[in-house]
Design a protein around this nucleic acid. Structure first.
Lengths: 152, 152
DNA sequence: ATTTACTCTATCGTTTCAATAGACTAAATC
DNA sequence: GATTTAGTCTATTGAAACGATAGAGTAAAT
């Protein structure tokens, strides 16, 4: 399960992606739009800024902006930043590999082979999906729903 | 990431699956074989017993036994028991659905659509894999390794 | 100078994690 | 039926993470 923090982060980044090119967004604006506790969101955006995902400007006309276009920012990248490795076990992580101290033989450990499958499936989805993709799929879905509604 | 508890549980169940049909296994025996802290393993096996996955017998010749054959016990079933839903967000869980309080429109939420994909991929793997499968794949892998070694 | 808005540090109550400990109880065996 | 073997149950513990909340501070426009 994702933490609330990560979920909020994804929603905030999605809002910032939708607004990309239209100048900065206020924390307060994002908090209101996505119904996220404002003070908590501040911390989250600050962390994303320190990690290089966001840029900010203080004072009037300030706010937060994506540091690069939404089609160059993958969900997997952000989640690894906030939650750590996508892998269910450290011994199958590509980005944060660690040996299981109790394991006799990693190469033939059945649990490991299975968890590697899970990791690969998860990473395939999350690393190939950018925030631009998320927006597009959401829009496609909205259109689909409307079409469905009209067709009744 | 799985907790140590879950990892230990899977390894213990794997040991019990390998021994299925050969009478009960002692906690101490499993702990030694899989290098799991014995006292911690007691708690884990007790929980698995209370959940109906294991059966135990006290006294001499006692120990733990799987409650049903390893080809009828899926990894997904066990993990849900110990870790809760496989889904990254409660709003995409099939077994423990919950609405996100802050969400405006669940049907078009892009984050949700993406996480549903992840959930489905994960569940497809873990629900279709039994402990018998894990053993078989591990054995196949061992044979493969040996063959590879010989072929050099 | 003043307002606006982000920045940083600290704190807090709760829960989970990963064990550890000890007393207890059931079941074989001798 | 005493004794050993081995699982059962409750409690505790220390550390860390979770999910905020609070307040003082600082940079940048107007």
């Amino acid at each position: 399960m994702l933490s609330h923090k990560s979920k909020y982060a994804l929603k905030a980044l999605l809002a910032l992606s939708e607004e990309y090119g239209n100048g900065p967004l206020l924390i307060a604006e994002i908090a209101a739009r996505e119904r996220i506790p404002k003070r908590f969101l501040e911390l989250i955006l600050l962390e994303l800024k320190n990690q290089g995902v966001l840029r900010s400007r203080k004072g009037k006309g300030g706010g937060y902006v994506l540091n690069k276009p939404p089609d160059l920012l993958s969900v997997g990248h952000v989640l690894r930043m906030l939650e750590g490795p996508l892998a269910p076990l450290p011994c199958v992580s590509k980005t944060a590999y660690e040996k299981c101290v109790e394991c006799h033989d990693e190469r033939t450990c059945g649990i490991r082979l299975l968890m590697k499958e899970v990791r690969d499936a998860t990473a395939a989805i999350l690393d190939s999906t950018t925030f631009a993709d998320v927006i597009n799929r959401s829009r496609a879905n909205r259109r689909g729903e409307r079409a469905l509604t009209y067709s009744i």
